[in-house]
Simulated assay, not measured.
Amino acid sequence: MQGQKTCPCCRKEVKQKRMVHVNKLRKIIGRLEVKCKNAEAGCLVTCPLAHRKGHEDSCPFELMACPNEGCMSRVPRGALAEHQQNCQHGAHQRFPLGCGATLGPAERANHNCYRELREAWCQHQERSRTLVVCLLRCMRKVHRSTNFIRRQLAQLGDLLEEDDALLVGASQEEAEATPGGSIGVEVWGAQGQATL
């Protein structure tokens, strides 16, 4: 039925629902010795029909697709390992453990993505430490400059207070020295005009 929908004797069409399963006959057919389907490729194995599928799953002459990305070759299972080593498409493949590295066959054998990721992480940590040290230096400089400016402003404020005190003292002395006892200081009125 898998190969042909007709009776092997009379060649009339056979329908699935009209078939009668004869287990004794099935066992007899299953014991029939058959050659491997890869006999033309060189497989010499002869096995019972019931075990043929199991043999084909491990037959070294069974054609297999090359697992390398982009390679369309189909090679016998026994030669697949050698093909993969020499495959043009297998020269550079992504490493399957997820690090994303594209490696050739020789590099793949020695590749340890965990070690490389650890080294990259250590380098990143070292750069981060260097940046933190530079930022701390800059912050110290800014802190020193800010403290210096505060001290300068405080000294300037003290000088201005002393100057104000001197000016007030000088104004009082002038007022006492002027005849009539009037203060010779200009006072600005509401209109912005000077009055004496």
Score class of each variant (00 low, 15 high):
residue 120 A to H: 05
residue 53 K to S: 07
residue 185 V to R: 14
residue 165 A to W: 10
residue 21 H to F: 05
residue 45 V to Q: 15
residue 25 L to Q: 15
residue 134 C to E: 15
residue 62 E to H: 10
residue 178 T to A: 11
residue 25 L to A: 15
residue 133 V to R: 12
residue 67 P to V: 03
residue 183 I to E: 13
residue 163 D to N: 10
residue 33 E to R: 14
residue 5 K to S: 07
residue 174 E to Q: 11
residue 174 E to F: 02
residue 87 C to N: 11
residue 119 E to P: 00
residue 57 D to R: 11
residue 182 S to E: 12
residue 195 T to I: 13
residue 146 T to I: 04
residue 92 H to K: 13
residue 99 C to A: 04
residue 107 E to S: 07
residue 78 G to L: 00
residue 2 Q to F: 01
residue 194 A to Q: 12
residue 99 C to F: 06
residue 177 A to D: 15
residue 40 E to N: 03
residue 81 A to Y: 01
residue 185 V to G: 09
residue 83 H to Q: 06
residue 71 C to L: 06
residue 50 A to Y: 06
residue 189 G to V: 05
residue 164 D to Q: 13
residue 82 E to N: 09
residue 55 H to C: 00
residue 167 L to C: 06
residue 13 E to T: 11
residue 146 T to A: 05
residue 68 N to C: 05
residue 74 R to Y: 08
residue 180 G to K: 10
residue 8 P to H: 09
residue 63 L to K: 14
residue 25 L to T: 14
residue 138 C to R: 13
residue 73 S to T: 08
residue 142 V to Y: 09
residue 94 R to N: 06
residue 80 L to K: 06
residue 93 Q to H: 04
residue 133 V to F: 01
residue 153 L to V: 09
residue 38 N to V: 00
residue 70 G to D: 08
residue 57 D to Y: 04
residue 138 C to H: 10
residue 113 C to P: 07
residue 76 P to N: 08
residue 2 Q to K: 06
residue 154 A to M: 06
residue 83 H to E: 09
residue 143 H to I: 01
residue 83 H to T: 06
residue 126 E to I: 03
residue 113 C to T: 06
residue 151 R to A: 01
residue 162 E to C: 03
residue 110 N to P: 00
residue 134 C to Q: 15
residue 47 C to R: 08
residue 22 V to N: 15
residue 83 H to C: 03
residue 120 A to F: 00
residue 95 F to S: 02
residue 81 A to T: 12
residue 131 L to F: 01
residue 57 D to N: 10
residue 164 D to C: 07
residue 132 V to G: 03
residue 133 V to C: 00
residue 77 R to F: 01
residue 104 G to K: 04
residue 37 K to A: 09
residue 12 K to C: 01
residue 25 L to N: 14
residue 191 Q to E: 15
residue 99 C to V: 05
residue 87 C to E: 14
residue 105 P to V: 02
residue 141 K to N: 10
residue 24 K to R: 12
residue 4 Q to T: 08
residue 14 V to M: 13
residue 158 D to A: 12
residue 20 V to Q: 11
residue 68 N to M: 02
residue 109 A to G: 00
residue 6 T to Q: 12
residue 163 D to E: 13
residue 24 K to H: 11
residue 186 E to R: 09
residue 166 L to F: 03
residue 126 E to M: 02
residue 12 K to A: 03
residue 181 G to S: 04
residue 23 N to H: 07
residue 171 S to Y: 05
residue 148 F to W: 07
residue 86 N to M: 11
residue 182 S to W: 09
residue 180 G to S: 11
residue 72 M to I: 05
residue 54 G to S: 13
residue 112 N to K: 05
residue 85 Q to M: 06
residue 150 R to T: 08
residue 160 L to M: 10
residue 141 K to Y: 04
residue 147 N to E: 14
residue 124 H to N: 12
residue 21 H to R: 13
residue 121 W to C: 05
residue 150 R to L: 05
residue 172 Q to I: 01
residue 122 C to M: 12
residue 108 R to G: 02
residue 54 G to D: 14
residue 8 P to R: 11
residue 90 G to H: 12
residue 193 Q to F: 08
